[in-house]
Each structure stands twice: as C-alpha cells, then as structure tokens.
Amino acid sequence: MTEYSPLRRALPHVFLVLAIAVILFPIYIVLIASTRTSSDILSAPMPLTPGTHMAENYSRAVLEGNQNLGSSALSMMKNSLIMALGISVGKIVVSLLAAYAIVFFRFKLRGFCFWSIFVTLMLPVEVRIMPTYKVVSDLGLLNSYAGLILPMIVSATAVFLFRQFFMQVPREIAEASQIDGAGPMQFFWRILLPMTRTPIAAMFVIQFIYGWNQYLWPLLITTKQEYYTILIGINRMLSGADVQIEWQIVMATTLLAMIPPALIVVIMQKQFIAGMTDREK
C-alpha cells in the first residue's frame, strides 16, 4: 500500500503460489494415480508424472466400476445428480413459498411457522441420526430417491435469505398489483419471482454443492448398489484390504466426483460469494 520495495511486492505472490500448491498437490496426486496401473501405484513410491492408462482407467471407472463394487461411476454420478438437484431445487421451491407467506401475509400461525423453521437450524442430521433413520424406514423410504432428498429439503438458511430479500421489496408494488386486479399468486409469479433471480441463483450454487457432497445420510439409508451416490461408492471401494483396492479406479472416480460441484463454483463464482457472505447478515 504505502511501502514499496521489490521484496514487499514479491512476497504475496510467493505465499499465494505456495498455498495454491499445497491445495492442489493432493488433487495432482489423484490425477496422476488415475493415469497409472495398479502395479505402478502399489510399487511405492508411485512416479509423480502422468502415466499412459488414463483412457483405460476412466472408461473402466465410468462404465464398470471397481470389481467388488457392482456399480459404475456413471450410475452413481446419476444418483448424486438426482440427489443434488432434488435437494437444491426442492429447497428453493419450498423455502420461496414459505418465505413469501411469512413476509407478505398476515395469518395466525405466522410466528409459530417462522420459529419452527428457525429451530431446524439447531437439528442437523448428525445429531439425530438414529431417530430420523427410523422415521424414514417406517415410511418405507430406505433405498429411494425420495428418502435421499426429502429429509434434506428443509433449510432455515434459504428461508432466511429469501425472507431478507422479500422484506426489502417495496410494498407499494404488492399494493399496486392488487389494485390492478392481480391475485397474490399472480404477483408472486409475474413480479416477485423475476426480481428474486439473483438470490435464487446464489442459493442454487450453495445447495447443489451441499446436496452433491452429502455423505452421512446416504451412508445410512442406501444399502442397494443402484442407489449409491458417488461418495458412498468411493467409500465402499476403499473398505477392503489394502491389496485389493484398485487405487487407479478409485482415484479416477474421486476426480470425477469433484468435477460437477467445482465447475459450478468456478462458473458461478460471483453469485456463490454473494450468497455465502449474505447469509452472515
């Protein structure tokens, strides 16, 4: 800022490049491993340069998967995608409707609804594992997409974000639309939703990543291979004796699992940062 010297100007670059190297190194290792053969990896140390088996490993990972797994990366990515889209879209729809009711309507149970949603902040899955499992099992939703998605749909954070945004919308607009003869739902569709595009996009990025990266919940309720998400698949491939693990397939699958959420963050970086830091307020 004020002091200028060559060293002062170079240092930030040194630190940042170093940090990025530390962040990227594990991913580089995964990339290398996914291009090598099993025996390359097992004869430690694995060479740190790319091998020649990339196409072979990836096509096996995508089409067949590990020998002891019985599920391919393609089918598991499909499940992860369904789960991530189901959770993100479901959350946004349900939260938009609830926030709309809470902000724009006066009704008896408004305070009660608001506080019930607020309390869910305090009940993450991690702390109510067994009872939630039991409820989902009683409803017959084990090994189903509905079971993977529905319990994850409630989001106090999404309701808060939309509520915050709706509260800044000038009420004259709502009043004017009423005078012009539009019903509340017409106002919602035609006027409010188009205004809410940016927060919706921000929520979508955050919730898609949240959904894609869910681990504990699918671990509990999926026992059939056809419902494995990609993360569960990776865990199953790794749960065997060390020598039986086909590291090159596991690493190819791990890299594939990282791509969709990473792409979304990079492409929608602006909305993502806005959405994240807005939650703080």
């Binding site: 962040i23 990266n213 993360l231 791990t254 699992a257 990282m258 959420p261 993502f272």
Partner: peptide
Amino acid sequence: WPYAVATMV
C-alpha cells in the same frame, strides 16, 4: 474453488 470439494473427498 476447493469449497466445492466434499468433506469425504
């Protein structure tokens, strides 16, 4: 971008 990496990964 590593925010997108799953805790499990």
